Simulated scan of single mutants.
Amino acid sequence: MTAAQRRTFTAVFASAGVLLGTAACSSSPAGVAGPGALSYDTVRATAQKLHQDRQNTCPFGLDLGKALKAAGLPDAVGPDTGNGSAVDGEVGDGRPPQPWPTGATHPPEMPSIPATPPNADITCAYRAGGSSLAVELFAVPKTGVAVNLLLPRIQSQARASVSQLRQLADHQPGPGQTVLVPGADTAALARLAPKGEGDIVLMLSEDSAGDTPDRTYTGEGLRKAAEALAGQLR
């Protein structure tokens, strides 16, 4: 499968997952947490502000240094301002159902790619020695679909194969749970219990230059750091 084919497959799979999101998550939200500190509206408003006025401090009190220290990892990190600023926000207004790409195989019960809801995305970039680390907060107003919509980004950061991506989609973390994404052990995902309706996920990932990740910030240590970050938002 070429890179272009994989991107197309992943985008289609993620969109289809919106329709199947409730079923895909039905086995994962065991031990559902109570209302969290963040709502979709709060994340969206903050993302809009950051898009217009970017800054170098991650919002909502997120402190990666403290999270890394709690996980037993080197905690000497600083903002990565290589793109002008370390923190950015983006918002999307969603889209109506779309036709499937020409030649794409799809379930008969899905004559079109399902509609996608509005969303908000905040990314905080860091440098730690020779490593690049990213904290990403992604929120939607619809319950149970944030992971599905974030699959293309998750695949890239986790260096995951299509089968590994399917594994994550079938076994997603429930609210209050954190998992290491199948792949190169370079991404961890935490699902937050939102305040009100919606779905919020936090991803911590390591993205060193080249094909070989820096093993300092991978595996179980990365998962524990993501868990600590999510704990800062409860």
Results as ranks from 00 to 15, higher is better:
2 T>F: 02
6 R>V: 05
12 V>D: 10
15 S>F: 05
15 S>K: 08
17 G>E: 14
20 L>V: 10
29 P>N: 11
31 G>C: 05
34 G>L: 06
35 P>H: 11
35 P>F: 07
36 G>H: 01
37 A>C: 04
37 A>T: 10
44 R>A: 11
50 L>M: 07
51 H>V: 00
51 H>F: 00
52 Q>V: 01
54 R>W: 02
55 Q>D: 10
60 F>D: 01
62 L>M: 12
64 L>P: 08
65 G>V: 01
65 G>I: 03
67 A>L: 08
69 K>Q: 15
70 A>P: 01
70 A>Y: 12
76 A>Y: 01
78 G>A: 10
81 T>A: 08
86 A>D: 00
91 V>I: 11
99 P>V: 02
99 P>Y: 00
100 W>A: 07
101 P>F: 00
102 T>L: 13
103 G>S: 07
104 A>M: 13
110 M>R: 08
114 P>E: 08
115 A>D: 07
123 T>W: 12
127 R>T: 14
129 G>M: 10
130 G>Q: 01
134 A>D: 09
137 L>T: 06
140 V>T: 15
140 V>M: 02
152 P>Y: 02
158 A>H: 14
160 A>M: 04
166 R>T: 11
171 H>L: 09
173 P>Y: 13
174 G>V: 03
174 G>N: 12
177 Q>N: 13
178 T>H: 13
179 V>M: 10
183 G>C: 14
183 G>A: 14
183 G>N: 08
184 A>Q: 12
195 K>D: 15
197 E>C: 02
202 L>T: 11
203 M>V: 15
206 E>I: 01
206 E>T: 03
208 S>M: 03
210 G>Y: 12
211 D>R: 11
215 R>G: 10
215 R>L: 14
217 Y>W: 12
222 L>I: 12
225 A>L: 12
225 A>W: 04
226 A>M: 03
227 E>T: 04
229 L>N: 09
230 A>K: 10
233 L>N: 10
